[in-house]
């Protein structure tokens, strides 16, 4: 049993600012009470580039991740700086395998304001943290929440994303906590005997 199984891997893909990675790691520690390692950056996923859509296919990226050597980590979160999509949607801000190991969060669309303004860096980082925590929530089998302030509420656009809090509602938090404990029992504690 690997000591890293209860630890989350944060993988920068392409040119991702250091501040973004540190923000995500800090938020994982605060909200999931789990340690996170920042791994070495990977190249932009050109293998997933769709010529017709001029975007990167999120499903292809996740599929490729499955064959990469992240075995010691229970969950892997990739932070990208490219525009990602799934076939039915024009774009997505993030993508995750429900109850699986791999999730993506893209910064590409977070740098634009709904009215064309350029948001501050702290605003962009807060948005990224929300997307990252939301997708990680899916990895722990937390589904979309009806509470429009909860981080697990589905945000169809940036206005919705800005409107939610950087917090899980009490129900999602309880579910998340149970799911993490189950996961820790299965894979062992990564060293920190923390409880949510």
């Amino acid at each position: 049993m690997s000591p890293k199984k209860g630890c989350i891997a944060v993988v920068p893909v392409g040119n991702v600012p250091e501040a973004a990675l540190r923000t995500v790691v800090a938020q994982i520690l605060v909200h999931f009470n789990l340690p996170a390692d920042i791994l070495s950056p990977l190249e932009n996923p050109e293998y997933a580039f769709d010529m017709r859509r001029r975007q990167y296919n999120a499903a292809t990226i996740i599929k490729t991740f499955e064959s990469m050597p992240f075995r010691e980590y229970g969950k892997v979160l990739a932070i990208l700086n490219v525009d990602i999509f799934i076939p039915i949607f024009t774009h997505v801000l993030g993508e995750a395998q429900e109850g699986g190991r791999y999730a993506l969060a893209s910064m590409f669309r977070l740098r634009k304001g709904p009215d064309g303004y350029s948001p501050s860096m702290s605003n962009i980082l807060e948005r990224l943290a929300k997307v990252a925590l939301h997708e990680l929530g899916h990895l722990f089998e937390v589904v979309h929440c009806a509470d429009d302030k909860c981080i697990m509420h589905f945000s169809g656009n940036l206005q919705d994303l800005d409107a939610i809090n950087l917090n899980f509602c009490s129900y999602c938090l309880r579910y998340l906590s149970e799911s993490i404990q189950k996961d820790l029992k299965r894979y062992g504690n990564p060293g920190n005997d923390r409880r949510l």
Binding site: P87, I88, F89, T90, S155, G156, N157, D160
Partner: peptide, 11 residues
């Protein structure tokens, strides 16, 4: 209309 914006599905 495929592909649709994520918020279209919510709507």
């Amino acid at each position: 209309l495929k592909p649709f914006k994520p918020d279209q599905l919510t709507l």
